[in-house]
């Protein structure tokens, strides 16, 4: 079976972002970008399924402006077989394409490629939406398992253990299906130097939204982007007894 892995290019998780003073967005110039960490986990899971002989091909797909191909290249260096880049215009206000639109683009790609499984991250760490996988599953009419921490492939089915609020839940999905990854699913590999070299020769096919029949116009109008109300450091106390005194006074005990 083929596996499609959508990967998003986001501000690296180690970067502390800054809000632009005029409220127009987040400062993105000269900032380190990386693959969304949950998507690294998705790529890793797909590669493991290929290495186990369950999957035949792993296709990385990304939607985004110039340089998004770097992120696809990272997936190829990890071991994905080929890439698809839906190139979008430089997004204004530092916006990325909305999850609903991403889901529609991915649906068009799924229909063209015919994968049995799509593995996405549970959430992109820039917009923190946590929507795209569920939306894609809905549009395709496929079953979904979000927040996966364990995946076992059966005969035309998939047993997925999910991290839910009270603990863990296991679902059996009929294939084709959509999965979204949680942190405990696996530990993604680093790309080795030879694999980085090899990845340079792997194909990345370029597409655009119009040829996929999808309108990129956003549905949410961003009115402003502001700094959250900050918190200031309090005081250091010297002992447990002093701490308890303060907590009593603050009325929280």
């Amino acid at each position: 079976m083929k596996i499609l892995v959508p990967v998003k290019r986001v501000v690296d998780y180690n970067v502390k972002i800054r809000v632009k003073a005029d409220g127009s967005g987040v400062e993105l110039a000269n900032i380190k970008m990386s693959m969304n960490p949950f998507d690294e986990i998705a790529v890793e899971e797909a590669l493991r399924l290929r290495e186990a002989g369950t999957a035949s091909e792993v296709i990385a797909v990304s939607i985004g402006p110039a340089k998004t191909d770097e992120t696809i290249r990272t997936a190829l260096a990890m071991g994905a077989d080929r890439g698809i880049w839906v190139k979008t215009e430089e997004a204004g206000q530092g916006n990325t394409v909305e999850p609903l639109t991403v889901a529609k683009l991915l649906k068009a790609i799924v229909e063209a490629e015919g994968p049995s499984l799509v593995i996405l991250g549970k959430q992109a760490i820039d917009d923190d939406s946590n929507q795209t996988g569920q939306m894609l599953a809905a549009l395709l009419g496929w079953p979904q398992a979000t927040f996966a921490s364990k995946v076992v492939v059966g005969d035309g089915t998939l047993d997925v253990t999910r991290e839910i609020d009270g603990g863990l839940q296991t679902l059996r999905l009929d294939l084709p299906a959509v999965l979204t990854t949680d942190l405990r699913l696996n530990e993604p590999r680093y790309a080795s130097l030879p694999n980085i070299m090899k990845a340079k020769k792997k194909p990345i096919e370029q597409k655009n939204a119009a040829e996929l029949g999808v309108d990129l116009a956003p549905r949410l109008e961003i009115l402003s982007t502001t700094e959250p109300s900050g918190r200031t450091a309090g005081i250091k106390v010297a002992s447990a007894a002093e701490l308890v005194g303060h907590l009593k006074q603050a009325g929280v005990l």
């Binding site: 609903l100 923190d128 939406s129 569920q134 809905a138």
Partner: peptide
Amino acid sequence: TAVGKSVMPRIAALIDVMQVS
């Protein structure tokens, strides 16, 4: 919640609405 996050985007997509998370 885990349920809300799993269910609502599915509905949103099926009625062609962009969800606010």
